[in-house]
């Protein structure tokens, strides 16, 4: 049983997508990578649950394979 929530949690999902996208606007690749890395760590800590993190990594890996 996965604990990761994959239902839509934002009232306006487009706003969230847009917010992340804009954070990367104008950044060189290396700066974008650094931003993403910091974000992952910050959000992982906010979630604070290894099972959720594990499921999220698993889902991300699957989708990256398909992409």
């Amino acid at each position: 049983m996965t604990k990761l929530s994959t239902s839509s949690n934002f009232a306006k999902p487009d706003d969230a997508f847009r917010m992340i996208l804009e954070a990367h606007r104008g950044l060189e690749d290396h700066a974008s990578h650094a931003l993403d890395t910091a974000l992952v760590l910050i959000l992982a800590n906010h979630i604070g649950d290894l099972d959720v993190l594990r499921d999220a990594i698993e889902l991300a890996k699957q989708s990256a394979d398909k992409a």
């Binding site: 990578h33 650094a34 890395t37 910091a38 760590l41």
Partner: peptide
């Protein structure tokens, strides 16, 4: 990427408790 993760932890550690502990 491992280097980037470490860099991010070290940078965040200045201001956040969670990163200090990482």
């Amino acid at each position: 990427q491992e280097a980037r993760m470490r860099q991010a932890v070290l940078a965040l550690a200045k201001d956040t408790e969670f990163a200090k502990r990482m």
